[in-house]
Design a protein around this nucleic acid. Structure first.
Length: 901
DNA sequence: CGTCTCACGTA
DNA sequence: CGTACGTGAGACGT
């Protein structure tokens, strides 16, 4: 009786718990429960089943805390059951293509979680589960079976519970023996008897007509089991009894087929299924690829620190006392010191509070920048600005901004773990230092046993991970990552890209961000008022047409008005109904001439322009200039991007839009803005990379590119190329660099697919080198796994070998475009370095302000216009030696608009 | 309040 | 069913 004193829950917890999941059935449920269109990656892969399954698994791991886990899968469609009874499951629809591709992904995730997956040729997942459940019970374990197959009900017993999905995959019903009996009127062991009588439509097993679960349960209860029911069949009365007698054979077949096999030979024992530490690096890789951010967080959040396999940093943290900094640095003279700045690294309003230095040997020095002894301050300033004192940092640009705010220059940065990680894996969305530490060092960003050495003036919060310790740990992580990432970069032959391109570019970008571009504040305010008035006018006219007010900016409300209320023809389908984008509205207007559409389009245009202007006004800094931030590690192709505000998408195509460009003006003390852009750089790179003689001739001839190509394709002279012909050729030439299909070309040009195909064939007949090059790029990338630019910048495209067509074709288009867009990015970065260096060398006061992918914007100091133009033309043209010239066009003017050409 | 979707600007 | 980005409004779920 003594054991009755112990709480039942504690007793239960002492027994091991095995979780067995029917992978196929649960994934299939998830596939239909979650709308596919809400779960696709940026590369177009559908992931709804993967998401649903993994989410369910995460919940089970959290709520049930199993000690052992396994997932069983079906192998193919043929099993011993289909051999025996060909009709078994014969009515099932073919598995959707979208679903099949997801099963391997689920297995990948399970592998990272170190969950055993099992499958057995000729058997179903249920048989594997039945076998394991039986063995687990025999060895004293409790078992949870998770399956959407009702046949699993027969496994339920005192130690075995079935979790059966009621709806979707998150709402699971818990079938204990009592629950089974409540619901079906028979104990779990008799459930197959009941199912044999009732039949199972989903397995294509017909039951006895007129016999449902109630009758079947009544008979089984009355006679004991199925055998007894069958034996008593002659005496059972009524229509049901008659039907039973004519279906005895079918019932026997059913009973044979629905019996789970409990003694399969399996390559593992139940003990082998014990939970193991997760492969966190692989998890990050797989979850990154699937773009499951929150799901990864949910899983990682479940790992208690004690079970965490990732170690922390074993670090001695020393707080700098007056005079100690110089000694510490001197002791490490010539060695690369990793540094971490805590603060804000914005171009304006930056600040730095703490600086941590680490040398990669478990010691870190923490310096409080807000309370520095004058002597130390000068020691630090000299060391930081010393280009010969090698340093490593995670995110050099932010560090320069942060330190710069305290008047400290940073030079001598020989390694940047952020840039290095980007060059190695340019497709990731973030390169958080903590993630890199886990991935490459298998460490968490926390201190194992931090300690001061007695001389510390700072009161370090060692256990709680205060600012100082945090900075020290990050610096230590940087120091260690340098070694690892240097190796990874070398493996990719990309060390030069970091040292000679991206790192030197940091200082150029810092200068551009810090300088900003002049903004005409009063003019911007006028523009805002002007566009706001246009918005109001368009809105009131639109309301007048439909006789009521509405939110014209709401796609949802617009759909109601256009398609329900006004009954307009349906446009292209999107997730949430029908598109109301400008192309569709313009098309609708041409067909219906409904005035509402014209007002709506005018409203769209005006409110967009107003919104752009408002954003710019908000961005004007106290110095009257706009300071964007150039992101150096975002675009997978190697381009820069611009944020806060984005100055790479300022309107230019429409007159109204160009008015916004007039707001970007030359600053006080400068003479003019100068813009310089590469003409047709992507097509020139295409000519170079493909080596196509025709295309190379086109650029060497000095003829208009599209006229030249058009003349060849259409077999006319260049002056016979009509503007219609020219625009077709232009669309096609650029489309090729994006992986355009004949379908896409036909849509864009409004011609038939056949015409588009013919046009492409004519094109390739004259420019065969282009076709061969494009085919070769994809082939090479499929073989090597990556594409490369002219400077060797790589982009890895694992999806090129995907079984999923959508995914594979997306990767193919990326492979076509990456070398071209990426080489253009390489070239303009080289040009920026050249221009920056040239300006300094020639002692010019003019400066770089912006980069817009193929264009540079400079602010020219008085009297330097000619020198700067020459310098910029030379440096941009000389940035790469291609088999075609790099043509640069230059314009100057008081505003960005006036400097256009 | 955070996250997603749509729409749309640039190269 | 043409690549690469960033932003803001509305819608939606927590």
């Amino acid at each position: 009786m003594a054991d009755r004193l112990a709480p039942v829950t504690d007793l239960a917890r002492t027994r091991p718990l095995l979780l067995l999941i029917d992978g196929h059935s649960m994934a299939y449920r998830a596939f239909f429960a979650l709308p596919a269109e809400n779960f696709s990656t940026s590369t177009g892969a559908t992931t709804n089943a993967v998401y649903g399954f993994t989410s369910m698994l995460a919940n089970l791991l959290r709520d049930e805390r199993p000690t052992h886990v396994a997932v069983a899968f079906d192998v193919g469609r043929t099993t011993f059951r289909t051999e025996q009874y060909p009709a078994y499951k014969a009515t099932r629809d073919a598995t959707p293509e979208e679903f099949r591709g997801q099963v391997p992904l689920i297995k990948e995730i399970l592998a990272t979680l170190r969950v055993t997956t099992l499958e057995k040729e000729g058997f179903e997942a249920d048989d594997v589960i039945a076998t394991l459940a039986t063995r687990a019970v025999a060895s004293g374990m409790d078992v949870l079976v998770c399956s959407g197959d009702r046949d699993a009900l027969q496994l339920v017993g005192p130690e075995v519970t079935l979790l059966y999905p009621r709806k979707g995959v998150s709402d699971l019903v818990r079938f204990t023996p009592e629950a089974v009996e409540d619901k079906y009127g028979v104990p779990p062991g008799r459930y197959p008897d009941l199912a044999a009588l009732v039949g199972e439509t989903s397995d294509n097993l017909p039951g006895v007509p007129g016999v449902g679960p109630k009758t079947a349960a009544k008979w089984i209860t009355a006679h004991g089991d199925l055998e007894a029911v069958l034996a008593a069949a002659p005496t059972i009365k009524g229509k049901a009894g008659e039907n039973l007698r004519t279906h005895l054979d079918q019932v026997r077949v059913n009973r044979e087929l629905n019996a789970a096999v409990r003694d399969l030979e399996l390559p593992v024992t139940v003990e082998d299924l014990a939970s193991q530490p997760w492969d966190r690096e692989a998890m990050h890789r797989v979850f990154d690829a699937l773009e499951f951010r929150t799901l990864r967080e949910r899983l990682l959040a479940m790992v208690p620190d004690a079970e965490d396999d990732a170690a922390a940093f074993d670090l001695e943290v020393v707080a700098a006392v007056p005079g100690s900094l110089g000694t510490w640095l001197a002791e490490r003279d010539g060695r690369t010191v990793a540094l971490e700045v805590s603060g804000r690294g914005n171009p304006t309003g930056g600040d730095a509070w703490t600086l941590a230095l680490a040398d990669g040997t478990q010691q870190a020095l923490v310096v409080d920048l807000t309370d520095l002894d004058p002597q130390d301050e000068s020691t630090l300033a000299v060391w930081l600005a010393d280009g010969a004192a090698p340093k490593a940092v995670h995110g050099a640009k932010s560090a320069v901004h942060a330190l710069g705010a305290r008047g400290l220059d940073l030079a001598g940065v020989v390694f940047d773990t952020l840039l290095a990680a980007y060059l190695c894996h340019p497709d990731q969305r973030s390169y958080d230092l903590g993630d890199l530490a886990v991935r490459h060092l298998r460490r968490e960003l926390r201190a194992e046993s931090a300690s001061g050495d007695g001389q510390g003036a700072l009161d370090l919060d060692l256990d709680g991970g205060g600012v100082e310790t945090g900075a020290a740990v990050r610096a230590a992580a940087v120091a260690e990552l340098v070694e690892v990432l240097r190796g990874e970069l070398a493996d990719r032959a990309s060390g030069g890209l970091l040292a000679d391109l991206e790192l030197p570019l940091v200082q150029v970008l810092v200068g551009m961000e810090r300088t900003g571009i002049g903004a005409a504040g009063a003019y911007l305010a006028e523009l805002e008022a002007h566009f706001a008035a246009a918005v109001a006018d368009a809105a009131s006219e639109a309301y007048a047409v439909i006789g009521r007010e509405m939110n014209l900016g709401s796609p949802k409300q617009l759909q109601e008005v256009l398609f329900d209320q006004l009954g307009m023809p349906k446009t292209k389908r999107i997730k949430t109904g029908y598109t109301t984008d400008a192309a569709a509205l313009t098309d609708l207007f041409e067909r219906t001439e409904h005035p509402f559409l014209a007002h709506l389009l005018a409203h769209r245009d005006a409110s967009r322009l107003r919104q752009t202007v408002e954003g710019l006004i908000r961005s004007v800094a106290p110095d009257g200039r706009i300071h964007t931030t150039f992101q150096q590690t975002i675009a997978a192709t190697g381009r820069l991007s611009s944020t806060d505000p984005n100055l790479q998408n300022i309107p230019i195509r429409t007159e109204a839009g160009r008015r916004i460009r007039r707001a970007f003006v030359v600053g006080d003390g400068y003479e003019t803005l100068l813009t310089a852009d590469y003409s047709q750089i992507e097509m020139r790179i295409m000519a170079h990379l493909s080596g196509d003689e025709g295309l190379i001739d086109a650029f060497r001839s000095g003829e208009d590119l599209h006229n030249f190509v058009g003349a060849r394709v259409f077999g006319v002279t260049t002056d016979e190329v009509t503007s219609a012909m020219r625009s077709k050729i232009k669309a096609m030439s650029y489309g090729l660099a994006y992986g355009l299909s004949s379908f896409g070309l036909s849509k864009q040009l409004g011609i038939s697919v056949a015409e588009a195909t013919a046009l492409m064939e004519d094109y390739f007949a004259r420019f065969g080198g282009v076709r061969d090059y494009l085919a070769g790029v994809v082939e090479d990338a499929r073989r090597t796994g990556y594409t490369a630019t002219i400077l060797g910048r790589r982009r890895y495209l694992p999806d090129l070998t995907s079984d999923n067509r959508q995914r594979r074709e997306m990767a193919e288009r990326m492979a076509l475009n990456a070398p071209i867009q990426g080489s253009a990015a390489d070239i303009i970065k080289v040009a920026m370095l050249g221009v920056h260096r040239g300006l300094a060398q020639e002692g010019l006061a003019s400066r770089l302000l912006l980069q817009v992918h193929d264009e540079l914007v400079l602010e020219v100091a008085p009297g330097e216009r000619a020198a700067v133009e020459r310098l910029v033309r030379d440096e941009m043209a000389a940035a790469a030696t291609l088999s075609v010239p790099l043509d640069v066009s230059v314009g100057t003017g008081r505003s960005w608009h006036d400097a256009a050409h």
